[in-house]
Amino acid sequence: MNWDTEFAISIIPQLLQGLVVTIQATVIGYVVALILGLAVAILRRVDYIGPVVFVVFEFIRTTPVLVQLLFVFALAPPTVAPLTIGISVLGVHYAAYTAEVYRSGIEGVAKGQWEACRALSLPPLRVWGAVVMPQAIRKVIPPLGNYLISMFKDTPYLFAITVPEMMFMAKAIGTEAFRSMEAYTLAGLFFLAVSVPSAVIIRRLERRYAAV
């Protein structure tokens, strides 16, 4: 059995439908990861709560996201949509990574900056909002961008909890038509079509922010 171009073209719309779900899950999950990760990075600096938060997210970071997905999917009441579960789990998982990025960004702000803030008696909100975060953000944009691409490439896991993303579609097509070649190859190409240009953009950003 060989490559069947006509069949390949006929399944493109279905796969693109899946790709839309994939991108949806990535974008929303990423926003969750960005916000939650920042909260985690700040909470880790708090006495008593900090170490607990660290251990919990270290556990999340070093265990497979696939197992976490299956686990939450099995526990959640059937009324919760699989896509919601998928986005939440991906978001929390990646918060463990973004928190580390924020942490290194915050620690990368020179000690003298904190001291200058104290010398000017700036209120905490200004210290964080006007001095520390603006400087930290510049350093964290490239690594955070890399995690957006990583997350995009982790969304196929959602197929394991019946979310109709691209991999789910490909598998469904394969089972139905007894042909897997075209669906999986196209899925792979679609992934490349999104992630390679994104990676190029991220590297540009990286160079631009490194230059300043």
């Binding site: 003298g112 200058a116 010398a119």
Partner: peptide, 11 residues
Amino acid sequence: MVFQQFNLFPN
């Protein structure tokens, strides 16, 4: 206070 390393806010 004026610091040895200036500590101006670069942003």
